[in-house]
Design a protein around this nucleic acid. Structure first.
Length: 595
DNA sequence: GTGAAGGGCCAC
DNA sequence: AAACGTGGCCCTTCAC
């Protein structure tokens, strides 16, 4: 197929008050507008917002903001802000989070009514990792148009922009309305409209979350990092000592140093000591040997200490933005094919659960954190989907779920459930969401294969509907080669049906996606509800971790904010859980800690 | 030097 | 026997 020629570009460059007034008047009645911005930096806390482009698809208006000294309150910009904030005028952007952050931070206004072609592309790709999602890729895929992005990195701070720069700026906005038409059609055909609505509604909350950032207590962090460094050093010294006996060649300076981070060298040294080291030296392989060999125990200790020290050390201080004194991480709204959000630079979703680390994230003076999470959200979704009365009953009592489940499985009164029984039930409760097998369950709990099988049989005999549901949905995702969440979010499964392992993996993947993805649907709905409820208050969303939302607010508002957070999360859950009770636990704290 | 791949491990 | 799902980060190893 021959590539479509780039469409001719018809744009108006607007840089005076009269032009702003006239242009905004002309587009005020448009249902859809292509929307793009050009900025002098990537980070809104550093550069300037130079251009805003709005396009009907026929005409593109390139608004130059260079001459404005006060973007937040200059009345000339009011009509433009009204268009951006008008939900009835859909702004079509690619990776709108970027533009939203700039507009919010520099113009001080919200963007309402968004169609994001980047998120739409991810939804339509439905987990196909071969598909690319740059604007050029998406435009080509859906409309056949070839785009050239060479001006993207050009200098947008020049007093006089070149014709080629302006043309580039206009072109990206101009293609958006036609692109949206194609993508909207596809979203409809794939029954992804509700999922898209969730994503588009979640853009502003995520943009604001990134702008807000989270406060990290520098001194506490340094102290903890130093503690971790010393601990690692001490353990490394001991491990080095233990392994030196297994090193063939000693250096001139006495003891031979081996690189403890090289699993190759470490495995060799251990073997030289006569320790039967398995092929892989992953923790779960080594764990059984730890009791017999102190060197193995020490190695595992070292790895944990090493992880803490390297991943959560002083390098984090570089992430503190000087302009705000806070950490502004990157949240990828569709970070996983399941719909989960991911986070990087740094990843605020993998802070060790230990208080020593969590407590470094605290509210600044005069403020509090409201920390709210869904209790057992994935298991409740499973209960809802399966309609298993016994499973739902265990939630309805409101008591400890694992205990209630254990009481049913072992047929004893809840108060007579032993610690062991509860642990077995808990492990199984978590495992089934991922599709755990008897062997894995056995090794987790120390049961033999056949004991593990028996216990799983007993478990599924208690929760018969759940068992049937897992089988049926597993069969369905294989037959249909796709899985969907409650909102309709889609994952296409690709597997070789002659390969039993591949089929089993696809089955686990698909079933897990329905649950994990529904949890993501609910969380994203909650973020939007919360964002709306917190407007014009002292409260800011500062982090979210899959089933948890953290809000920072003035101390005096904390009680009220906690209620709002709880309500937003409950209302979001109620959209998808009708039969199963939902529990949101919110607490007020000076620090991000457990309880 | 740089980057990809693989191993390992943190979170939910 | 690792067949328990999703991510990101750090390190080593190895290819270019």
């Amino acid at each position: 197929m021959t590539p479509e020629r780039s469409p001719s570009i018809n744009f108006q460059y607007i840089n005076d008050p009269e032009g702003f007034r006239r242009a905004c008047g002309e587009i005020l009645r448009e249902p859809y507008l292509g929307f793009d911005t050009e900025t002098t930096e990537i980070d809104p806390y550093h550069g300037n917002l130079r251009l805003i482009q709005l396009s009907t698809g026929r005409t593109t208006y390139v608004f130059d903001l260079l001459k404005f000294t006060d973007l937040k309150s200059d009345p000339v910009l009011e009509p433009l802000k009204e268009i951006l904030g008008n939900e009835k005028i859909v702004k079509i952007a690619h990776n709108a989070k970027f533009d939203l952050k700039w507009v919010k931070h520099h113009l001080g206004c919200e963007v309402r009514g968004i169609f994001d072609t980047f998120l739409a592309s991810l939804l339509i790709a439905a987990g196909d990792s071969d598909r690319r999602h740059s604007l050029a890729d998406v435009a080509h895929f859906f409309t056949g148009v070839e785009l050239d992005k060479s001006e993207q990195v050009s200098d947008w701070s020049a007093a006089e922009l070149t014709p080629s720069q302006l043309e580039y700026a206009a072109r990206d906005a101009q293609i958006m309305p036609a692109l949206r038409e194609q993508m909207a059609e596809r979203l409809k055909n794939d029954r992804l409209e509700e999922a898209a609505e969730i994503e588009f509604q979640c853009l502003m909350p995520i943009a604001q979350l990134e702008l807000n950032g989270i406060f990290l207590d520098r001194e506490r962090w340094i102290e903890q990092a130093e503690r971790a460094r010393r601990e690692e050093e001490a353990i490394a010294e001991q491990l080095q000592e233990m392994l030196s006996a297994g090193v063939a060649q000693t250096s001139l300076f006495g003891r031979a140093e081996i690189n403890l981070d090289s699993q190759q060298q470490v495995a060799d040294a251990l073997r030289n000591l006569g320790i039967p080291v398995p092929e892989s030296t992953r923790a779960w392989e080594l764990q059984p040997l730890a009791d017999s060999y102190p060197e193995i125990a020490k190695l595992l200790q070292y790895r944990a200490a090493r992880k803490s020290h390297t991943s959560f050390g002083e390098n984090w201080l570089e992430f503190i933005e000087p302009a705000t004194g806070r950490i502004h991480a990157d949240f990828r709204q569709i970070g996983a094919p399941t719909g989960r959000i991911s986070c990087s630079n740094p990843n605020l979703q993998q802070i060790p659960a230990e208080d020593a680390y969590r407590k470094c994230f605290r509210a600044p003076e005069g403020r509090r954190l409201v920390i709210a999470d869904y209790s057992q959200i994935e298991l409740r979704i499973l209960a809802e989907f399966s309609e298993d009365e016994n499973f739902i009953k265990a939630f309805e009592s409101g008591a400890d779920f694992h205990r209630m489940a254990a009481a049913q499985v072992f047929n004893v009164a809840p108060e007579s459930v032993t610690q062991d029984q509860r642990t077995f039930a808990k492990r199984l409760n978590f495992g089934i969401v991922y599709g755990v097998g008897a062997s894995r369950f056995g090794s987790m709990t120390g049961l033999s294969r056949s004991e593990a099988e028996n216990m799983m049989r007993q478990y599924f005999a208690t929760f018969r509907r759940l068992d049937a549901y897992l089988r049926e949905s597993g069969q369905r995702v294989i037959n249909e080669r796709m899985a969907r969440t409650a909102s309709g979010r889609l994952l296409r499964l690709r597997f070789d049906e002659s390969n039993r392992e591949a089929v089993a993996a696809a089955r686990r993947y698909g079933v897990n996606m329905m649950i994990q993805g529904t949890s993501a649907d609910i969380l994203k709905r909650a973020l939007r509800f919360l964002y709306d409820n917190l407007a014009d208050s002292s409260a800011k969303i500062v982090n979210t971790v899959h089933d948890e939302i953290i809000v920072e607010c003035d101390t005096a508002d904390a009680e009220e904010v906690a209620k709002k957070v709880e309500n937003a999360m409950r209302d979001a859950g109620a959209l998808y859980l009708m039969k199963t009770p939902l529990l949101v636990e919110a607490r007020i704290s000076k620090e991000w800690s457990k309880e």
